[in-house]
Structures are given as structure tokens and as C-alpha cells.
Design a protein around this nucleic acid. Structure first.
Lengths: 339, 339
DNA sequence: CTTAATCGTGCAATCGATTGCAGGCTTTAT
DNA sequence: ATAAAGCCTGCAATCGATTGCACGATTAAG
């Protein structure tokens, strides 16, 4: 890389001290310099196409203007929209995002955290979903600024942004009830993940309230293959014991599709399937997936706003933002099959 | 953020100069310090949980250990795997990735480039696909180290990593030929995007070689909706004039599905459809999509390797790496319909 | 017309690391 | 025993910005 023009270069050409150049170029301090000088210097800086060295500035100001974004896995399609939402806010405020993937591995998460700290990030947006809170507590003890997104965060000292999972589950179950379903299976994610446990609890409560007969099975991960394995096992043990499946997220629902196909069953004719998230392309699955749509982009936006407010010491922002979700009815859910 | 322990803190506790601490902690320079001192200092640093300030180091060494990754849009599912491939290499070598989205907008790309330069990135991985080369030339003139990925790069002064698009198109067309198709439509992306033009040319050449009768239409973007619009228009103007469609990528193919459905046509019974990329979930579409699988993760890996070699002045690496692709046959392609 | 307040600019320290150079001490060779 | 060489370590400059303080010049007040 060629070396870029520095404040000193501009100062020399303008015949002034670097401090004057610095003050002229910065919005907040340019009032300390005469208008004539400011104009002259701005013009020269422009000509020399000066642009500040964020690294040097960060050293002095103790602000790197970068934010760490911790996700489990960027290839899970719900995270790119969140990241883009985050990014849209950060960029407009002069920040950049350093996105890292933990693969839900605590060891990796630790290493990544250290790496982010060494890079002097100004704050963290945490989208990993462990209910286990020791990591979060550790961050907080180190005085790290952070916001949690897409994960329940009770008893945790950080603000959070979540979708209204309970309302989503309720809407889905009411939809099933209206279609006549009485026996519903919940394919939950691992309860170590907070979204999984929240949705699972909501399922239990609402189903009881609606007078449904329920079963719950757990997948070992929020992935297609884990969903398929769990559903296969269920279908082998309890054929035809339920008329609908509510999956913990869309990936699990996709696993359910695979398992149904393997057992010669069709959705929704034999069994209705509902997912959660309305991830990209869920309308293009076979059948198109009825699911609860969560506003991932907006969640990213709100979490970034919350974090920046926290960093810049603005207004005390709300501790928790819950964004509304909506049920999207598609082909995979239908009336109870007639025997 | 609480202030962290610095070299000076460790030095004071150890009763030595910061320079000795610095040399002791760095692999390459620890030979200059006596073993006894190194051990003592390492122990103390450990106790004080010292970790280096990357910003300060970067200022002095003129290396930020961060890489800019420029993609059009992270929510396009082919990019997350590329980014994760890049990341896997970067992280193991101590680098971090700053991922930015251009939305194929030159103005935004310019602003992002400036922002990356201000952050002193050590290099760029460029996954945006404009055939227009002025931006690239500008980067090169500024002495920026870079690698191109997933885009043709002839006449450009940077190494590149691409999938073997021409071979993929050939495999797809040969597959169609074997199924008896003689009249094939190519739904190309905008030719301003390099992958689109490469695939389009390969289509023309191979189809001629196979003696097929061809038509080509262009979508205005590599998106589902653009594909749908273009295909709708085609179906209205030329109903039943082809028996197969080769789309420029999977998103366009999905658009084709939508258009077919709208016109009451089914794949593959009425018309065969083939995509390109084998993006995540393309096997779950309705029907599952026959497509050319490109090794996106590996492309990310190789591009990161190429870039780091370039940065660290290692072996002269090859100017161009072409990775093999494979045709994945699924439900959306079948024999020519009998009339 | 003097004194005080204000304005504009420069000096120099600072952020936390890295690194060339110098010098004291030890070791080796003659 | 003495000179040469090598080994450790410290000093201080440096990377490129920001910012408290000081000082001379200008303006306002009395």
C-alpha cells in the first residue's frame, strides 16, 4: 500500500501547525480556528485528497469506531438480514462492523472475543443464543458495552432486541386450532438456546390454554439435518399420532419436510407443518412454508441504535425492545385430514 | 470500556523496559532476550492478562491486520459461504474481515472503499461483479493489494479465484441434450455483471456446438423478481417455443419457477429448468432445482490465501485459480415433453 | 488609554506499541 | 592477558492523529 497523505503533509503545505489542520478539519473543533484558515486548509486537504487515518485517531481517542457482531453462523439465513440491518445504522454513523461466527462453540467464542477486544471494538452486538450466561457476565464485568439481539435476555445486564416469539407461537397455534387440529407436535431446538426455550415454553402454555393435546421432541441443533433426524425418530415411534407440527424454526421445519417425504407423508394433506422466522426462500419450499415472520433487518437496526446510544452516552434507551411478528400462512398448513 | 493492561504496566511490574517486554512477547524477537527474562515476562504478562492493542501496533507497523471484503449483498445466499471461507483462513492467520455491501451501487462502493482505506485495511477481497473495470483500476493505482473472487478478471492486474463457469454451462447443456432438448432458452443476468456475461458466452458457444436452437433473454438483475419479470414477458410473447431454460443463477431460476406457475406450466413436465450455484436450499425448492454446484467456501478460502501471500510477500502465487464445478441433477430437469 | 477578555495558533504531550542504535557485560579466540 | 565478538537490555524516536495549555494579537469594556 502506498503511504497516504497525513495531517503533517497538509500542515506543511498550508504553512501551519498540524494542530490547526486537525482542528480545521474536525466539525466540533473548527470553531476554534478562523474561518479564513479553515477554508484554506479544507481546500488544500481536498486537493491533496487527505483522509484521516482511523487507526491513529483511534489510538489517541480510545475509540476504534468499530463494533463486533457475534453470530453463530452467517450461513444461517436469518443472520444476513440482521447483519445488514446493523450495518445500515453503523455505516451512517461512521462505524464499521466486524462480524464473527462462533458456530455455537464456547471455545471459539472466547478466542473471537479476545480478538475483538484486542482490536479495541467500541461495543458488541451479540446474536448468539446460549441461555448459559457466564460469557455475557464476563463481558459485562470487563466493562464491555453490548446489546443482545434475537435472544431472550432476562437477568442479563444488557439491553436486548427480540421478536415477539410468544405472540408468534400463539398465532401459529390459533391458526392450527382454527383448522381443527387438536394434537400438535412441537419440534423444539436445543433448550440451551434461548429462542428455543422461549418458544417451547410459549408452546406449552398456549397449547394448554387452547386445550390441545401436545407432544414435544427436541432436535440437537437448529439445523435441517437435526430436525430431520428428530422427526424421523418420532415418526417411527409414533406414526399418525399428531396432525400438525410446529417447528422451532424454519430449518427444523425443512427437516420435517425431509422426514415426511421419507415416510411417504405429505404436508399439509397428511400433516400440517409450521416454521418460525420466515427465512428467505421459505415461500419457495415444497410445499411453501407457513411460518412466523420475524423482522430481522429491523432487529439489526434497533440493536445497532441501542448500542450506539449506549456508547455515545445518549438518552437512556429502553432495556428491551420487542418487535411484532406476523403469521404468514402458506401451503404447508391445512385442515385436519379426514380419516 | 475499562482500560486494559499495557506493555508499560507489565514492564513496570517486571522491572524492565517496555522494549524488553515487547521483544519477549513477540515470537520473532524473543530470541533477542535471555530465556530467563522471557519466561519471567511471559509469566507476568499472563498473570496480568495482558493482551496487545492491535490499534497501537497497527499504527507503528503500518499493518492493521484487517482485510476488506466487498460483496454486493450478504443476503444473496452465495456470499455467506464465501465470506466464511475467507474468514476461516484470515482468522487462523491473525487477520479479521471487514465485510461491506455495495448493493451494486458505484457510489456506495466508492464511499465504502474510502472508509476501508481510512481504516488502513491491508488488502481487499472483491466479490462484486461489474465488468466495468475503472474501480479496480483505481484501486490498483493506489497500490492496494487485492484479490478478485467469483468474477472474471481478464485484463485486470489482480489475481482471481473463480468457478469453472464455462464447464458448468457445458455440463448443463450436455445434460439437456441427453434428455433430448433441442430448443433451449438462456435467461441471462445483466451483462454488466461478469459472471453473467461469461455464462452467456459459454451458453452460446456450447449450444452451437451441440447443434441446439437457442434464445437468450436478459434479466435486469440477478434476483428472483427480475427473473420472474423477464420470464413472464418471454412466456407471453413466445409460448411453448422452448423445452428448457438455463438460468444465469439460482435466483433467476427461482424467478422462472414463479413465472411458470403463473402461466400454469410445470417443471420439468412442461419445461425443464436449470440454475447455477447450487445455493443453499436449492434442493428444497418446488421442484428441487437442477443446478451447477460451485465451491463457494473453497473460493473464499483460496482468495484469502492468495491475498495473504500477496501481502506477506510470499511465493509468487498463480494469477488465476479456477475451481471445478459439478452438475447436480434434481427434479427440475427431465426429458422433453411429448406432445 | 489602560486593562481585561477573547480569539487564533503553536507547542508538546499523549495514546500503546515497535525497533534502530548504543553501551555494558560476558564470552571466546589468540 | 587482551582484543574482538556476541549477548542483553535500555533509550528514544516513530507511527498519525487529538488536545490541554500557553502566548501573542485583537477586540471590548471602563
Amino acid at each position: 500500500m502506498r503511504s497516504r497523505t497525513t495531517l503533517a503533509d497538509v500542515a506543511k503545505r498550508a504553512g501551519v501547525n498540524v494542530s490547526t489542520v486537525s482542528r480545521s478539519l474536525n466539525q466540533e473543533t473548527s470553531g476554534q480556528v478562523s474561518k479564513a484558515t479553515v477554508n484554506k486548509i479544507r481546500k488544500i486537504a481536498e486537493e491533496m485528497s487527505y483522509s484521516p487515518n482511523t487507526v491513529a485517531r483511534g489510538l489517541r481517542t480510545r475509540k476504534s469506531m468499530t463494533i463486533g457482531v457475534i453470530v453463530p453462523d452467517l450461513t444461517n439465513p436469518i443472520f444476513p438480514p440482521i447483519v445488514r440491518g446493523v450495518d445500515s445504522v453503523l455505516f451512517s454513523r461512521g462505524y464499521s462492523a466486524l462480524v464473527v461466527n462462533t458456530d455455537n462453540n464456547a471455545e471459539i467464542e472466547n478466542a473471537l472475543f479476545d480478538s475483538l477486544m484486542e482490536r479495541q471494538v467500541d461495543g458488541l452486538i451479540i446474536a448468539t443464543g446460549h441461555t448459559e450466561r457466564s460469557m455475557i457476565t464476563k463481558y459485562h464485568n470487563q466493562g464491555v458495552k453490548a446489546v443482545l439481539v434475537n435472544r431472550e435476555a432476562s437477568g442479563v445486564p444488557y439491553p436486548s432486541v427480540i421478536g415477539d416469539d410468544a405472540a408468534g407461537i400463539t398465532a401459529a397455534l390459533e391458526h392450527l386450532a382454527k383448522l381443527g387440529h387438536k394434537k400438535v407436535l412441537h419440534l423444539a431446538g436445543p433448550t440451551i438456546l434461548s429462542t428455543a426455550s422461549v418458544r417451547s415454553n410459549a408452546f406449552t402454555n398456549t397449547a394448554k390454554h387452547l386445550g390441545m393435546s401436545t407432544k414435544i421432541i427436541k432436535a440437537t441443533a437448529l439445523s435441517v439435518s437435526a430436525g430431520e433426524i428428530a422427526m424421523n425418530k418420532f415418526l417411527e415411534a409414533n406414526p399418525k399420532s399428531v396432525t400438525a407440527v410446529l417447528a422451532g424454526n424454519d430449518l427444523l421445519a425443512l427437516g420435517v419436510f425431509h422426514a415426511l417425504r421419507k415416510h411417504g407423508l405429505r404436508a399439509p394433506q397428511d400433516i400440517s407443518v409450521i416454521g418460525f422466522n420466515n427465512m428467505p426462500f421459505s415461500e419457495d419450499f415444497s410445499p411453501s412454508l407457513t411460518t412466523v415472520s420475524a423482522p430481522h433487518f429491523e432487529m439489526g437496526v434497533e440493536s445497532a441504535r441501542l448500542l450506539i446510544n449506549q456508547i455515545e452516552g445518549k438518552v437512556t434507551s429502553p432495556r428491551k425492545i420487542t418487535l411484532p411478528v406476523t403469521l404468514v400462512v402458506r401451503e404447508s398448513s391445512g385442515p385436519v385430514p379426514k380419516r
